[in-house]
Computed example of a mutant assay.
Amino acid sequence: MPQQIEIETADGACPAGLHVPAIPSAKGVILYMDAFGPRPALSGMADRLADAGYTVLVPDLFYRFGAYGPFATDAFGNETSRQQLMTMIRGTTQAMTESDSGAYIEALTEAGVTGPIATLGYCMGGSRALVAAAAYPERVAAALSFHGGNLASDADDSPHRRAGTIRGRVYVGSAGVDNSFPPEQSARLAEALRSAGIDHMIENYVGMSHGWAVPDHSVYDVAGAERHWKRLLTVLEEALV
């Protein structure tokens, strides 16, 4: 079970789950949530990472909006919850998460994570993981995105524009068909990372749908999720040394 903590940020108190391994570890992971908020499915994933020997922090990126959900993973199918979700997503900017990530790293340090960390994100969290890696290159040794959206869009704050300040390894696992990360964005991100000299891999999970790796999604795929775990744990083992 995680410890429930509050992290003081520039904009208030951010609730977070802190998952500590049985044997204390100096290596940590920030798990950036998908659009539906912290919930048992993400907590279970963080527990699995803790069982593998990492201290894991799961912050609530939507804390500025006060109490909510979490949302069911079919929330976009309901007009009321879809509008609420979109308001919260648009109202939680990359700049906000970048600023908050400094406090997240500090919270991990206070928990004994004195070594390198990884940033890991799903869906909307995927772009946050890359932005945090660019903002805190001295601590982030790996950034991983699974079915992350808008990683190389036309927006001014698109993560690919920050590739030049990343120093850690980057892994991107994309769904086979995902309108939020189409082939042209994949190519643009690859070019940005290669031009910046970043050790990276962008892998296409053919046949998987957006959300396949998170167990409470309707599109969850057991084989695809285990493939994601294999890639994830390998990158962490190799990069967090």
Rank of each mutant, 00 (worst) to 15 (best):
residue 177 V to Q: 14
residue 127 S to P: 00
residue 229 W to K: 05
residue 179 N to K: 15
residue 13 A to K: 14
residue 139 R to D: 14
residue 176 G to I: 01
residue 185 Q to M: 01
residue 28 G to P: 01
residue 223 A to M: 10
residue 30 I to C: 03
residue 207 G to H: 04
residue 199 D to A: 12
residue 112 G to A: 11
residue 54 Y to G: 06
residue 21 P to M: 13
residue 206 V to K: 07
residue 196 A to M: 03
residue 120 L to Q: 06
residue 151 L to H: 01
residue 154 D to P: 04
residue 17 G to K: 01
residue 105 I to H: 06
residue 225 A to Q: 08
residue 155 A to S: 09
residue 164 G to A: 12
residue 37 G to H: 00
residue 29 V to C: 04
residue 197 G to S: 06
residue 14 C to S: 14
residue 95 A to E: 15
residue 86 M to P: 11
residue 174 S to P: 10
residue 136 Y to A: 12
residue 113 V to T: 08
residue 153 S to I: 01
residue 19 H to W: 08
residue 141 A to Q: 07
residue 46 A to V: 10
residue 84 Q to V: 00
residue 104 Y to D: 04
residue 83 Q to G: 09
residue 106 E to W: 06
residue 98 E to L: 14
residue 5 I to Q: 11
residue 227 R to H: 05
residue 206 V to D: 11
residue 161 R to P: 02
residue 90 R to D: 00
residue 62 F to I: 04
residue 110 E to G: 08
residue 221 D to A: 11
residue 118 A to E: 05
residue 25 S to V: 09
residue 192 A to T: 09
residue 107 A to W: 07
residue 152 A to T: 09
residue 49 L to F: 06
residue 144 L to A: 11
residue 111 A to W: 06
residue 80 T to M: 08
residue 166 I to Q: 06
residue 71 F to A: 10
residue 195 S to M: 10
residue 38 P to Q: 13
residue 165 T to C: 01
residue 169 R to P: 13
residue 59 P to L: 15
residue 37 G to I: 00
residue 44 G to K: 05
residue 30 I to A: 05
residue 8 E to P: 03
residue 199 D to C: 08
residue 203 E to D: 14
residue 224 G to N: 02
residue 64 R to H: 02
residue 106 E to V: 09
residue 86 M to H: 10
residue 31 L to E: 03
residue 119 T to S: 15
residue 156 D to S: 12
residue 100 D to H: 12
residue 162 R to Q: 15
residue 232 L to K: 02
residue 23 I to M: 13
residue 73 T to G: 04
residue 238 E to K: 04
residue 17 G to P: 13
residue 220 Y to V: 11
residue 89 I to H: 04
residue 93 T to Y: 07
residue 231 R to A: 11
residue 180 S to M: 06
residue 237 E to A: 14
residue 170 V to C: 05
residue 100 D to S: 08
residue 170 V to G: 05
residue 125 G to W: 01
residue 22 A to D: 15
residue 11 D to S: 03
residue 80 T to S: 12
residue 100 D to V: 05
residue 228 H to F: 13
residue 229 W to S: 15
residue 211 G to Q: 10
residue 232 L to R: 03
residue 235 V to Y: 00
residue 29 V to F: 06
residue 63 Y to A: 01
residue 161 R to W: 02
residue 162 R to G: 13
residue 191 E to M: 08
residue 157 D to N: 02
